[in-house]
């Protein structure tokens, strides 16, 4: 039985900064439960001493010369923002008033 409960889905959605409706919580609880259950087979499949692969083609650290290259202007970088002021992104308050 899956450990995905409505409370877990609400908690995860909160961590992911996504408001969810009650209907979405119900639907995702059921769907994610099925997906997670099907993933449970993996643990048994790799019971032996198997190294993890995070990147399919191994590469060493990739460096370039530390020289200034052309980059976006401040104006271009701000062009997609919903709100900006004095060359900065403008956002709502970060802390609650309480």
């Amino acid at each position: 039985m899956s450990e995905i409960t409505p409370e877990v889905v609400r908690h995860l959605a909160g961590l992911a900064r996504i408001d969810v409706t009650d209907a979405e919580v119900d639907r995702f609880t059921e769907q994610l439960g099925l997906i997670v259950d099907s993933a449970a087979t993996l643990k048994a499949a790799v019971a032996g001493d198997v190294p993890a692969t995070s990147h399919p083609i191994p590469m060493k650290n990739v460096y370039r010369e530390d020289v200034v290259l052309e980059s976006l202007s401040q104006e271009a970088a701000l062009s997609g923002s919903a709100d900006s002021e004095s060359g900065r992104f403008r956002v709502a308050a970060i802390l609650d008033e309480e």
Partner: peptide, 30 residues
């Protein structure tokens, strides 16, 4: 998109990481 973000957040959460994401990366080796 919401489904996958929430699932990914779960797979990466502490306590489940080794069982899920860790195992999946080992399957990748297999």
């Amino acid at each position: 998109v919401k489904r996958r973000i929430i699932l990914g957040t779960y797979a990466l959460s502490s306590g489940y990481y080794d069982d899920y994401y860790g195992s999946a990366q080992k399957v990748r080796t297999l």
